[in-house]
Design a protein around this nucleic acid. Structure first.
Length: 851
RNA sequence: GUCGGCGUGGCGGAACGGCAGACGCGCUAGCUUGAGGGGCUAGUGUCCGAACGGACGUGAGGGUUCAAAUCCCUCCGCCGACACCA
């Protein structure tokens, strides 16, 4: 018997698999298709343990499904555009491309050393022109469909990255998702994808994603943020206080509180503010508040006391429900980009309005009062306003009864209440309001003022306006010689941007912004299905065959960004007839992080464990099995070198057990014989040990299969350890008393069961120990007989009044009556003749007796 | 503040409502070895007990049930997402 030596075995089999194209997948294969996908890496440096975990999970699933007879698509690629490449290039006086492709080469080598079963022929790199060409093509398709817009909008600006950001890319307390610099608000003309057109469908279809973790669905639902309510038009008064024809529209979820509106608010950056105050006595104070709001960063706004600042504009609006004139204020807690940028303030029913009213001494008339509140006795049935202030410490926003609300008084009030509906109906009748739905989701800002990205295929012509680059002119190739170390962008390259207008032929100017990298990762999983297509991003017949992805695996950090954008792309492309399904990812597994002593590993903390070092010491198989064993895949995992050593020992045990089962002389490194036979063992005892081992074999095959189906890799490995432990007892049986067929069956099953997790070792044992032909990874998954996993007799616990007091051994197939009688007999002494109240028999588990 | 997740030995973690702590790490003892490493065997929740055995035990408290780590209620603690969303 040779020794287990991963460093010799692993590279040898990797080379052989590559030579024989073991993992190449073809649509021509008539087995059922299965698409297993892991989130592709960003080439920011070497592979880390998070990648190892992500890809080990995906690889086990892929290999397991192949052994079960599926034709498995399991691709990998690189998400290669983005800012880190530019920053690294500046630091190293290199180019983003050079840095990116060098990292990809290193990462590819690492992934190969880990033995992942990717079809390398299908690899895509998003910064390759063969890929981003089709990203531009899709952009033009979406433009045609009316889903692309260039418009002025308040946007998030990262001063450090010198670019705008999407809403989703502002993280934590108002920081840039890349560099965490506080973002600024600016009004700029930018490119948008109209993801809000799909807000309702993106929300509705979350219900159909029952293969996704509940919390991811919840996070997306919150992000989309649907609220039902009403749009209500207030009539604007002129400077003299007389009503005009002009209306200002508000959005509210609480139409039932409309009678309680005692003032009206505009966002500081609202376009009407300037007109209202210019040249008036209110101008100075209003300007002061506007300036205060603009200077506060998002970070500052979300911290501290959140003191609300405001100023009266000198103008009034008329409340459409009661004709009452209320003053227009501005305040920094009203946001321009939610709702309409204008708010009807109801201080008795909204805590923010309440605080504002207290600060500026504005009326707080109660309009919805809770059942049981003593005020209700006083106000119940009062249609007219008799009370202008509340004795409360804070606003009341729960359900209650409407008071001081004209004809609506007495109706139930609250969110989505009968009262709210009645008010909306009345407003609709008069044409001054209607029920509506508002979303928190904003359109996706996709333009970036950066070099290392996919160029936006658009041209500005003085005559024709903004025109798309004609499809036959694609790709717009990203020039390689832009010097980012000198701060250059595409806007510094006349040879790039000086073009002729494709419509009129006059000199024009090419767009120099590039697309957000998230546009690249929103459709890469589609390209994998048809990666070499030179006519289209993918052919519909091929993409519909593989998609949707059966199992997607990646980090929870993409719960909103990438997963929401990909869902949007899928729906938008579906509506263009490019594909025939509604959702990209049927099942989603969000794996936990790999930590060290409870902390996230990072270069800056200097607590990084390098996978390459671990492969060097224990081999790729041990690292893979270890990372699957340490925790369930969705939970965080704390690194433990001792446990990795334990797994290495386990693999050695598997190795020796297989050889030993096959009758080989098992020796350690020094040649010491390890297998010591129990020569006293008689024929009957040997037979009994064989029966036990056979039972354990069938139990473990069943357990591992069930655990793989549920992705409980940690308990699957436990079960394999139990099988190896059970093998230990059988290996004491001298060779001449062993059941050779059984021993071989166990050895074979062990190799097959371990193959998805430790592919190299399994392949070596398959050939060298078992003398099988063909790859173990193409062999069928072992079958099992559940009836063979059951012993002839079983020991039951006997509970007396809820506590285990006795045990009884019965035949496994004993009837309930026999079990009951046996249990009563075993417990007779303890019961002592007292009357039995109840007996519960749980087959093969226990008997519960109550007396 | 809102939403979501999680609290089990020294550690990582197991337990379709049915004998809590599988499996592994660590530790203890013995065998093997010149030593180390490795391997093998046994033990390892807490308390009482020489032992047979017994009592207690899944963040705290209550409830449902013959039976609760698991289901329900209240509370405490930790983690995460969103957060002045009208």
């Amino acid at each position: 018997m040779q020794q287990y030596n991963p460093h010799e075995i692993e590279p040898r089999w990797q080379a052989e698999w590559e030579r024989s194209h073991l993992n190449r997948v073809s649509e021509a294969d008539d087995k059922p298709q299965y698409y297993a996908l892991e989130m592709f890496p960003y080439p920011s440096g070497d592979i880390h343990l998070g990648h190892v975990r992500n890809y080990s999970i995906g690889d086990v699933i892929s290999r397991y499904k192949r052994m079960q007879g599926f034709n498995v698509l399991h691709p990998i690629g690189w998400d290669a555009f983005g800012m880190p490449a530019e920053n690294a290039a500046i630091k190293q006086e290199s180019t983003p491309g050079a840095w990116t492709y060098a990292n990809i080469d290193r990462q590819r080598a690492s992934l190969k050393r880990l033995g992942f079963s990717y079809d390398w022929d299908r690899s895509v790199v998003t910064s390759d022109v063969e890929y981003y060409h089709w990203g531009q093509w899709i952009f033009l398709k979406l433009w045609e469909a009316g889903l692309v817009e260039r418009r002025n909008s308040p946007v998030n600006w990262c001063p450090s990255c010198a670019t705008v950001l999407a809403n989703e890319q502002v993280v934590g307390e108002g920081g840039c998702w890349r560099c965490h610099t506080a973002v600024e608000r600016k009004v700029l003309e930018q490119w948008f994808f109209k993801i809000t057109d799909y807000a309702q469908e993106l929300l509705d279809d979350l219900d159909s994603l029952d293969g996704w973790p509940e919390r991811v669905r919840q996070m997306q639902a919150n992000w989309i943020g649907r609220s039902t309510g009403a749009e209500i038009d207030f009539t604007l008064c002129d400077a003299a206080g007389e009503p005009t024809d002009e209306k200002i529209r508000v959005f509210t979820t609480r139409a039932d509180t409309l009678f309680g509106c005692s003032f009206f608010l505009l966002a500081p950056e609202h376009p009407l503010v300037e007109d209202f105050v210019a040249g008036t006595a209110y101008e100075a104070e209003v300007r002061r508040v506007v300036k205060l709001a603009a200077s506060a960063t998002a970070v500052e706004r979300s911290k501290g006391e959140r003191e609300k600042n405001g100023a009266f504009t000198g103008r009034f609006v008329v409340n459409p429900i009661n004709g009452e004139k209320v003053p227009i204020w501005i305040s920094d807690y009203v946001m321009m980009d939610y709702g309409t940028g204008a708010v009807m303030a109801v201080p008795s029913g909204d805590q923010r309005d309440y605080e504002f009213a207290r600060k500026y001494d504005l009326p707080i008339p109660p309009v919805v009062v809770a059942e049981g509140d003593p005020m209700l006795l006083l106000l119940r049935g009062n249609a007219r306003r008799v009370m202008d202030d509340v004795p409360w410490e804070c606003a009341y926003d729960g359900p209650g009864v409407m008071v001081q609300s004209g004809a609506f008084t007495g109706l139930p009030g609250g969110k989505d209440s009968e009262g709210a509906q009645a008010v909306i109906d009345q407003l609709a009748l008069e044409g001054v309001g209607q029920a509506t739905v508002n979303f928190r989701l904003r359109d996706w800002l996709i333009s970036r003022q950066r070099y290392w990205g996919n160029p936006i295929p658009a041209i500005y012509c003085d005559v024709c306006g903004i025109v798309p680059v004609p499809q036959e002119d694609l790709p717009v190739v990203l020039p390689k010689d832009v010097d980012v170390t000198a701060g250059e962008t595409l806007a510094d390259r006349p040879e790039f941007y000086e073009v002729d207008c494709p419509v009129c032929g006059k000199p024009a100017h090419r767009e120099t912004d590039t697309m957000d990298t998230f546009t690249c990762s929103s459709w890469y999983y589609l390209r994998y299905t048809d990666p070499h297509n030179k006519e289209l991003p993918f052919a519909r017949t091929v993409v519909d065959g593989w998609m949707p992805v059966d199992q997607y695996i990646g980090g929870i950090e993409h719960a909103i960004l990438h997963l929401l954008y990909s869902r949007f792309f899928t729906k938008a492309l579906r509506d263009q007839g490019l594909l025939g399904f509604d959702e990209p990812f049927t099942n989603l597994l969000t794996q936990g992080m790999v930590k060290l002593e409870g902390e996230v590993m990072s270069k800056s903390k200097g607590n990084v464990i390098a996978p390459e070092d671990m492969i060097e010491r224990f081999g790729a198989d041990a690292l893979r099995v270890y990372i699957l064993f340490m925790a369930p895949p969705d939970k965080d995992l704390d690194w433990s070198q001792e446990s990795l050593e334990g797994i290495y020992r386990f693999l050695n045990r598997v190795w020796r057990s297989v050889f030993d089962l096959l009758g080989a002389e098992v020796v350690d490194e020094e040649g010491t014989r390890l297998s010591l036979y129990d020569t006293n063992l008689d024929e009957a005892a040997a037979l009994e040990r064989g029966k036990q081992l056979n039972r354990e074999l069938h139990r473990v095959i069943g357990k591992v299969t069930a655990d793989f189906d549920r992705f409980n890799f940690n308990t699957a490995i436990s079960a394999l350890m139990e099988l190896v432990n059970a093998t230990g007892a059988y290996l004491k049986v001298p060779l001449d008393r062993r059941d050779e067929a059984l021993a071989r069956e166990v050895a074979r099953a062990l190799v097959l069961l371990v193959a998805p997790m430790a592919p190299h070792m399994a392949e070596e044992l398959w050939h060298v120990a078992l003398d099988e032909t063909g790859s173990v990874h193409l062999a069928p998954w072992p079958s099992f007989d559940p009836s063979k996993a059951i012993a002839d007799t079983v020991e039951l616990a006997v509970q007396l009044n809820g506590k285990v007091r006795a045990r009884v051994v019965v035949a496994t197939d004993a009837s309930e009556f026999e079990v009951r009688e046996a249990a009563l007999a075993a417990a007779a002494a303890l019961i002592g003749g007292r009357p039995i109240e109840k007996v519960v028999v749980v087959p093969r588990k226990l008997v519960s007796i109550v007396y």
